[in-house]
Design a protein around this nucleic acid. Structure first.
Lengths: 206, 206
DNA sequence: ATAAAAACTGGACGGCTGTACAATTTTTTA
DNA sequence: TAAAAAATTGTACAGCCGTCCAGTTTTTAT
């Protein structure tokens, strides 16, 4: 009655435990890799940089990831989860145009000030996708999620989602990227100035 | 009365002729390099790629340009001249909001359709400047010129140039970049659809 | 025409990169 | 506890890259 079945479930449990443990390790490695990538950028970060930055041996990276591209794509996926989650929770309690604009603005400004290096990496990877097609799926996935956030904001503000919502995202992204670029320069804006910028942009369609 | 003077002016004329000839060659090389960079991107274009693409020997590149970075920065400068010139002439005959919006829209759409590869390179270099400080001066110079174009459009439309004109540029750039990205994908928009997008954006502040 | 200067060539060199793998250590299983 | 599996290390390798340079050809000046 058992035997084979007991064995197979046991093996399955073992395999699951293995893969979950392996996934945890992959996540940990990816987090270290992101730290390195944030500082050096896609083009300038070698596997040795990542290994050194995370006290890992070089061979480890190839043991957990097929090749460099696979590792970086995995990293971008990890980045997405965190970023999208932050904005969804920020918008969660808002209702009506005023509250949504305020919550969205606060989330954008906080993200620019705290995570500028991370966004720099995102823009770097998004650009790489122009030239390296293997990055395109994950970049598209993230950009779809970002457009969904804009749709969510529109909905929470009480508006219908227009067909050109993607261009609302595009405009907002242009302002965000520009603000971030200058925030990393030698004349960063104050929190209040940044708030004004995004409130004005968001007011145009929220 | 002459002698020394005659000699020095002659030498000067010769030196000028030399440098102008040298500059012409540098431009020619840069144009070939841009062709290669447009297709492969900053990170994936080697000096050998450029040499092969332009029937030049490898040593030539180092003979005319100190190093790889100098060559690429020179290329970006060449790109700027052409792009900015195109838009200034496009806006030159326009007067009043309607004409300016129409001329600007037509220039943007034509540029997206014809020069998408070139813009891809521009966005690539602008991103590199995030991580490689040597690119920052030329990128800043170009972005200033682009903001000036927006200011010119505002002026031609009869408006005063607002202090936040840079953010008008940023919004427009966001839309432009997004449109370009999808234009290179598998579902490019028609010319009319693109015109609608930019007319709508430009109408917001022109 | 000849000597000097500039333009150009092709290859060599050292360094770095991603990848692969044999050897060792740690963990798990029976 | 002994054997098997997984995890981890360090190194070796093959290839590519930017840079440099000795030598050759072409252009310029007198």
């Amino acid at each position: 009655m058992n035997g084979m079945n007991e064995m197979s479930t046991k093996l399955k449990a073992r395999a699951d435990r293995m893969t979950s443990k392996r996934d945890a390790k992959k996540r940990q490695i990816a987090q270290s890799a992101i730290d390195a990538l944030k500082h050096l950028g896609y083009a300038n970060t070698t596997l040795r940089d990542i290994a050194a930055h995370s006290d890992l041996s070089l061979g480890m990276l190839h043991y957990y990831f097929e090749d460099r591209g696979t590792l970086i794509i995995y990293c971008v996926g990890i980045y997405k989860e965190a970023f999208v989650h932050d904005f969804r929770t920020a918008l969660n309690d808002a209702s009506g145009p005023e509250q949504v604009i305020e919550a969205f603005t606060q989330a954008l400004v906080a993200s620019i000030i705290d995570d500028d290096m991370t966004h720099r990496l995102w823009y770097d990877i998004r650009n790489q996708a122009f030239f390296d097609a293997t990055f395109r799926p994950v970049v598209d996935e993230i950009e779809t999620a970002l457009i969904d956030i804009v749709s969510l904001a529109l909905t929470k503000a009480g508006h219908a989602v227009p067909p050109n919502v993607a261009y609302h995202y595009a405009l907002l992204d242009g302002a965000f990227r520009y603000a971030m670029q200058h925030q990393m320069g030698d004349t960063p804006k104050t929190r209040g100035e940044l708030e004004d910028v995004f409130r004005r942009v968001l007011t145009q369609f929220l």
